[in-house]
């Protein structure tokens, strides 16, 4: 494959509430976690993930793909169990 190997490191700010914890009054804190996350390189999927509530708070993900060039766009999106979603983009350096 043409181009370089690209190391991608993703750090997401998210509670990843498991649904197992109780609050001070003993009530279960409802689960709230990222279910789907995808990474794209210039629009092409390079990793697609499904997560459960066991992924740690403020998730970290690292992977490597081939074929990236400096300045190419890496886009990461997620959707959580409440339907909230976020997309961020960065350029390969």
């Amino acid at each position: 494959m043409q181009g370089d190997k690209v190391l991608v490191r993703v750090l997401v700010t998210h509670e990843m509430e498991s649904g197992q914890r109780k609050d001070a009054e003993g009530k279960i804190i409802p689960a709230h976690f990222i279910r789907e996350l995808s990474a794209r390189h210039n629009g092409r999927p390079v990793l697609s993930a499904q997560w459960g509530p066991a992924v740690s708070k403020n998730p970290f993900l690292q992977f490597t793909f081939a074929g990236g060039k400096p300045g190419d766009k890496i886009q990461v999106s997620w959707v959580d169990s409440k339907g909230d979603t976020r997309t961020d983009e960065t350029a390969i350096s």
Binding site: V46, Q50, A54, Q62
Partner: peptide, 20 residues
């Protein structure tokens, strides 16, 4: 089941993630 990753051609079959 904690996580599942689809690895397309061109992506190394390797992931690092943190779990509870």
């Amino acid at each position: 089941l904690a996580a599942q990753f689809d690895v397309p051609p061109g992506t190394d079959p390797a992931i690092v993630t943190r779990f509870k």
